[in-house]
Every structure is written in C-alpha cells, then in structure tokens.
Design a protein around this nucleic acid. Structure first.
Lengths: 168, 168
DNA sequence: CGATATATGACAATATATTGTCCTATTAAG
DNA sequence: CTTAATAGGACAATATATTGTCATATATCG
C-alpha cells in the first residue's frame, strides 16, 4: 500500500489516548475531592465547621427554604445517605447551629432549620472566610473558566447519578 | 445623563455573579467527590476494591515505579496523610493485593509493591470495569471536553495545594 | 378500615480521612 | 562520633461516608 502522506503518528483519536486522559481526569478528581475536604474544612475551622457542615448551612440558608428542609429532602439535595446526614445534623445540633422539629403537616417528617446562632456564624463569620477561599482557589479563573468548569462538573455529576440509580 | 444604549441589566461582571458561580462550582465539586467514591467503589466492588484502593493500584501499576513506591512517596503522590495511607495499605496487604518490604538501600523506608495476585486483579478483572466506568461517566464528553475538564481540575488542585502548604 | 408506602430513628460493620503525639530505627550532616 | 533530620509504626480522637437491618410512627390508597 502506498503512503499517501497521512500522519500515522497522530494517535489523538485512538481509544488509548481517551483512556489515558480519563485515567488522569479521575485521578485528579480523586485528589480534588480530598483537597476540597482538607482545605475547605481548614478555611472554616475557626467557626467549628467542616466542608460538609458548610454545605449543609449553604443549603439551609437559601431563600427558597426559609422554613427549613426535611431530613430526606436535605439528603437528596446534598446527595448523601440519610444515615450520614443524621450524624452530621446531630453534631450540628450539638454545636447549636441547627435545630430539628417535627413537621406539623406531616408528623413523620422532621424539619431542620438554622438557629439564630447558626445564622450568625454562617453569615457573619463563615461567609467572609468562604469568599476568601473561593478567591484563592479560583484566583486565575475568568468568569468564563468558572462557567465552563461548572458545566463539566454538572455533566459528570449527571452521569454519575444515572449510574448510581441503576443501569437498568 | 443620556442612556447611550449600554445594557445596564448586564451584571455578568459584578462580584456577586462570580460569588454565585463559585458557590455552585464548589457545591457541585462536593457532590462529585461523594459520587465518585460511591459509584467508583461500586464499579470495582466485585474485585473487593474501593475507589481509594483503585487509586493506589493505579499508582503502583505505572511503568515508572515497577520496583514499588515508599509509603512516603505514595502518600505524597496521592495527596493523603501517611496515617490514612497506612490503613489503606494494611487492608490491601490483608487482602493480598500488595506487599510491603524494607528498602535495602534505606532501611528506614518501606516499599509497597503489587503482589502477583494484585496485578492479576488489577489488570484482568478491574481494568475492564474501570474502562466501562469511564465510558459511562464520560459518555458525551469529546476528547476536547476531557482535556478541558482535566485542565480545570489541575488548576483547582494547584491552587488548593498552595493553600494547603501555607499562605505565607 | 386495613394494607401499604413513607419518613425517620437506632444500631452495626466497615472504610476513608484528618490532626496530633510519642517512639524507634536509620541516615545524613557537622 | 554526636547531633539532626527523616521514615515510619503505633495509637488516639474525631468526622465523614457507605450499606444493611429492624423498628415505629404516620400517611395514603383502595
């Protein structure tokens, strides 16, 4: 066969390149996961919070859920197990950040709300630390970069959720 | 003042937009972290592995480290604490995936290598599952998408490492 | 009303993950 | 050779995280 001048060394469309890239992507995602928990918790440790508790306060502080969220809804929203969330909420109740009351409309359900103290810690103390953390980590990200990263994370998350719910 | 036609409703360059985007980005990263551990571990659970053990076998199976890696180097490579790694390695030794021997050149150092059984599990059993996992999660990612995502993860990781090592 | 579904608590086992401390062996630097 | 630094073991406390099971109260459906 005659070589018509194709660049036979270009393997960018080969499956092995894709595999290698995927390998690196998931390895870095794994490292990011650990570093997020480590540096995030350190950013709010003076407030007695962790990255996970920060996520919960972030969820509860939204305008849409001013009356609080049920354990089940919160678990679904955060994508964690009910049992994991129970531990988290227990520690946060112990620390006075949240309170849990029975839902008057559905007495099976228990509603988690931020306490006055929790709101103060969140808005006054933690928010400035969190903004500083964002700016440090995303220092050389343009608005466009942030948007693109968010888009890719959402795509990955969607695929993982589909995988989680079952390949049936 | 005369309105010269500027779109005064465009707040895309306002700090609040950037803050809101950063909030979403880190929230999704937090969810991705949990879902990676959950779906990743499920992908290799038939092999008795977890996402973390997969990362270790991935590190040890590289051509560059055929003679194994020390505990310290492995911890640095994976960005986890020595104590965390010790537990992981202990469980993997218990399961026969790795073995640990004293380094003859530096008798303080202990070298972790994959056992024959570990290599078989990794290459024959786990690899196909992992490739399938990659393809499911990155199904609608082009090579370009994967490259960009990897690039953003590396930038985030770099910033987090700088933050971790100290703001001095 | 009676069967069933749902929301949650309570408990257990297991694996990750951090920080911190104390100890010991070994190596490297002076 | 003495002192320093380094590598790691061993242990503890704490917080996340999963799965699985059993029990109970409450809703909802037929």
């Amino acid at each position: 066969m005659i070589d018509l001048g194709e660049d036979v060394t270009d393997r960018s469309t080969e499956p092995s390149v894709r595999l290698e890239l995927a390998n690196r992507l998931f390895f870095r995602l794994y490292q990011c996961a650990n570093m997020l928990h480590k540096t995030g918790s350190r950013a709010v440790e003076a407030e007695g919070l962790t990255t996970q508790q920060w996520a919960i306060l972030g969820a509860l502080s939204r305008q849409e859920v001013q009356r609080g969220m049920s354990i089940g809804d919160l678990a679904k929203y955060l994508m964690v197990s009910r049992q994991n969330l129970a531990g988290l909420i227990g520690r946060m109740e112990r620390d006075g950040h949240v309170s849990i009351v029975t839902d008057s409309r559905d007495r099976r359900s228990r509603i988690v709300t931020m306490t006055k103290s929790g709101r103060r810690v969140w808005h006054i103390q933690a928010q400035p630390k969190i903004r500083a953390y964002y700016e440090e980590v995303l220092a050389d990200f343009s608005i466009n970069d942030v948007t693109h990263t968010l888009h890719y994370l959402l795509k990955i998350l969607g695929a993982m959720q589909r995988l989680d719910r079952g390949p049936d």
